[in-house]
Simulated scan of single mutants.
Amino acid sequence: MPAQTPQKQPNLLAGIPFVKGHGTGNDFLLILDPSGQIDLDSRSVAAACDRHRGVGADGLIRAVRSEHVPEGRALLQGFPDAEWFMDYWNGDGSSSEMCGNGVRVFVHFLAEKGLVSLEAGATVAVATRGGVKRVAASPDGYSVDMGPWEFIHPDSAIARGTDSLVEVQGLDVARPALSVSMGNPHTVVALASPEELAAAGLHAAPLVTPTPPQGTNVELVVPHDPLVEDGVGVVTMRVHERGVGETQSCGTGACAAAAAIRYWAGDSAPSRWAVGVPGGAVGVVFHAGVDGREHVELSGPAELVAEGVLFPASFPAGP
């Protein structure tokens, strides 16, 4: 009996203009939908982000005015200046809270479209599923107040300095780790050397025990020797992002990595950090927020590299 031809489903992004951008190699497709007319679904997003059969990206970002999405309307009650909502989707078609590199690229995209202005000293409030983030121009591109960071697991686990074990392909034994929330979950592992970092196989998702309730991103981090240079902590990391795989960079991951290494380093650790990633470098600064909690500021570049229109292709239905 001949094999049946798979059914096709329409790509809901067919005919939609897009711009491609990246922040330190973490790349995104950006689409402008001010009045919330575009329906997104996981299959269409995954098809567009596929690196062999689509345009290719780590994620897709829809720019929509906050008043047109439920999460945005809720945030407008407390932050009326958060006009734009960053609707972020991972490359596998799953939605996510936010993305530190993505929010810089998002604001750069809006600025290039003439939809926001970043005059000297001005900030842009961006609504995300992880709360409102404020973005300003900086010497290296854009800086973002990522909000407060916090540990994911109970205080009893934190008192021991670690809260989980992580198994990574290419590393001989499970490594102790610390889980940090930046509005999205991260699990940070410190490694002893660049050789260990290079040997890690991040094509497969590391096994984290226990896994945070919403899953987790995993950062493998090597502190430099010396750790502090001219008052700045220096680390290098690689990351496996949930719903994506290994990426060239992760902004929230860089913040989480700096937070964990700073915690392990003790009270004398600096507040400023330089985090090297495969796609470049970002800056991380810890400072007191107006809410009385310690906030994290992320800075780094954002670039737009191409634009086009998604063709009206169809793709096979999933199971």
Rank of each mutant, 00 (worst) to 15 (best):
G280I: 07
V305F: 09
R293V: 04
V309E: 13
E241R: 07
V208N: 03
G266E: 03
D155Q: 14
A111Y: 12
A122Y: 08
A177P: 02
D230Q: 15
E303N: 12
G292N: 08
D81Y: 03
H186I: 07
K133D: 11
S66V: 01
G93W: 08
R134V: 09
I152C: 01
A204R: 13
I31K: 01
Q4L: 15
A174G: 11
H186S: 02
F106R: 07
C255K: 00
H108R: 12
S164A: 15
S156Y: 11
P139A: 12
S164M: 00
G91R: 01
G245N: 08
Q214C: 13
H287Y: 10
G243Q: 07
A265Q: 10
V235I: 15
V284K: 05
V284H: 05
V180Q: 04
P278L: 05
L110Q: 03
F109T: 04
G233A: 03
L304V: 08
G170F: 02
G25W: 04
P139S: 10
C250A: 12
A198P: 05
P270I: 08
P206N: 06
P34T: 01
G253T: 01
T209E: 14
V166M: 02
G266M: 01
R73M: 08
N26V: 09
L191G: 05
G91C: 10
S117M: 12
R43M: 13
S66I: 00
I38L: 14
A306E: 12
V105K: 04
A46M: 05
W273C: 09
G54T: 08
D87R: 07
K133V: 11
G130K: 03
G54L: 05
G215H: 02
A260H: 10
N11E: 08
A259K: 12
